[in-house]
């Protein structure tokens, strides 16, 4: 079999260029000496230094981190519970509806989620701010955690729980001492996933944020409207770095866990 035929190599290059050239350019030009975004003027890290002076960007970054941290933590708790319920209770009445409703936010257009949450906050007369952005992020990232946890639970041996109960452990302690430690990698990767989702969300945040709760993607977007500066390249590069780190860690954890499951099943 010719694994690296000319055609294969060609399509590989085209595909990956298509995906990554814009991001690579963005990263390259963040190290540009020149103020012009399209002309290379030599290597420099001065835009990163300048970034540190920009109070607006720093504020937005801080808001983003707070929102991402709180929303992913809450989403992980709720999503884990949802994932557990879906596997543990087997085929209860209305299960299909229930699981469908959990997955719906994954395919729902973000604009709709953003708009509907906005309308709800308006109807309930809740002032928009960090709190509302966080709530909205919990809603849409929860389903990702539920999916990850559910897929882990499908290979979880229920007799482990029963064995713990049988040995005199209360149901709550059983969850804390047995179930949670075993599914922990899935929970952690669910957390990382929702953290990165929250970090790079623009649409939902635009709908649900208010004054003083501008997130980093929103800040970048509004700065671009006044013209692209290398500063934006610099902050975008950092964002790309953080998100990549999160996603890679999550998938590494997932892979390690899969190997562990295989290992226990083979013995």
């Amino acid at each position: 079999m010719k694994r690296f035929g000319t055609f294969n190599i060609f399509s590989l290059i085209v595909g990956f260029s298509f995906l990554y050239i814009p991001i690579i350019l963005l990263i390259l030009f963040s190290f540009n000496e020149s103020r012009l975004v399209t002309v290379w003027g030599g290597f420099s890290t001065k835009w990163y230094a300048e970034l540190m002076q920009n109070q607006g960007i720093k504020d937005a970054a801080w808001v983003t981190i707070k929102v991402a941290f709180v929303s992913s933590t809450m989403a992980t708790i709720l999503g884990t519970i949802a994932g557990l319920v879906m596997t543990r209770f087997g085929n209860f009445k209305g299960r299909t509806l229930f699981s469908g409703m959990i997955y719906a936010p994954m395919v729902m257009p973000e604009v709709i989620i953003g708009l509907s949450t906005l309308l709800m906050f308006v109807a309930l007369a809740i002032d928009r701010g960090i709190f509302t952005v966080t709530l909205a992020h919990i809603t849409f990232s929860m389903c990702y955690v539920a999916v990850v946890v559910q897929s882990r639970m499908s290979s979880y041996d229920d007799s482990l729980t029963e064995a713990a109960l049988d040995l005199g452990c209360t149901p709550f302690r059983t969850f804390m001492l047995i179930t949670l430690p075993i599914i922990l990698p899935a929970v952690v990767s669910g957390w990382l996933l929702s953290f990165t989702l929250s970090l790079d969300d623009l649409v939902i945040a635009s709908f649900t944020s208010g004054p003083g709760s501008t997130t980093l993607p929103m800040k970048i977007y509004s700065m671009v409207r006044l013209g692209v500066t290398p500063e934006i390249n610099a902050v975008s590069t950092i964002l790309v770095g953080v998100v990549t780190l999160g996603v890679v860690t999550a998938s590494l954890i997932g892979r390690r866990q899969k190997q562990q499951i295989l290992k226990t099943q083979h013995t």
Partner: peptide, 29 residues
Amino acid sequence: PPHLRPINMMFQSYALFPHMTVEKNIAFG
């Protein structure tokens, strides 16, 4: 409920806790 019964069970799949050593498994109850 099962956790209050003076009865213990040995499971077909053994159900050993994978994250604990042999010693900790035996000490669990």
